[in-house]
């Protein structure tokens, strides 16, 4: 689905603290599979994930999405592609406080201009799917960690993306909740979605759901299986 060739990413380019977080990545992400990125802290997992998910542009190198070169696209078009293709689940969940669960779920669909009624119906169905139907009007700051993550998952699915991207999804969860998350992951993978995640957690990386593991060190791929 995604093909990266010779990707390099610099921070603070041209200044004394210039830092190359990625130096020459070649990687293909298979469609309808679960790919996990692992590696020590600071190895560039999150940076790579932002490039895969069209959140950021590489400083050098090519990114192809289904054969189309998208590496030089301005942010305006990149955002459009991202909205249609990817759903995001963040480590800190990143829900907007003060809004209810269902309001948070529909947020990514606002720029698409789909009618509110349609959006609310879909959001409700998604929440019911993860057993949160009864909490739809609760403010997110009152939800437990596990519930918040399930809201975040629903939010990632509102635009019905082909791919899901998750950065350290289990870092803030205990073992029981992590298991629950893996269950949901399994269901999503079974429904034919491409999933890319980063994790330190052996329970995730070594679980049966994950098809493809990529190991990073110092901004380079050291192992792939």
């Amino acid at each position: 689905m995604l093909e990266l060739t010779n990707i390099r990413k610099a921070f603070n380019q041209g200044r004394h603290n210039e830092y190359w977080a990625l130096s020459g990545i070649d990687l293909a992400i298979p469609e309808r599979k679960v790919t996990a990125l692992r590696g020590p802290s600071g190895s560039g997992k999150t940076t790579l994930l932002t490039i895969l998910g069209c959140l950021a542009r590489p400083t050098e190198g090519r990114v192809r999405l289904k054969g189309e070169d998208i590496s030089g696209l301005p942010e305006r078009f990149l955002t459009e592609i991202r909205r249609q293709t990817f759903g995001f689940i963040f480590q800190q969940f990143n829900l907007i406080r003060g809004l209810s669960a269902i309001e948070n779920v529909v947020l990514p669909a606002y720029p698409t201009g789909r009618p509110r009624k349609v959006l609310l119906e879909r959001a409700e169905a998604l929440l019911a799917d993860v057993n949160l139907g009864h909490r739809r009007d609760a403010k997110v700051e009152w939800l437990s960690g596990g519930e918040q993550q399930r809201v975040a998952i629903c939010r990632a699915l509102i635009n019905d993306p082909e791919a899901l991207i998750a950065d350290e999804p289990t870092a803030n969860l205990d073992t029981k909740l992590s298991k629950e998350f893996l269950g949901i992951l399994e269901r999503l993978a079974a429904s034919g979605r491409t999933i890319i995640l980063t994790s330190h957690d052996p329970m995730v990386v070594e679980s049966a759901v994950v098809d493809h593991v990529v190991t990073l060190r110092d901004g380079q791929i050291v192992d792939e299986k």
Partner: peptide
């Protein structure tokens, strides 16, 4: 600022 960051990450464009 955090809110705007979240909106942008989940698919809002600068123009939005």
């Amino acid at each position: 600022k955090r809110e705007i960051g979240i909106l942008k990450a989940i698919g809002w464009e600068t123009g939005d």
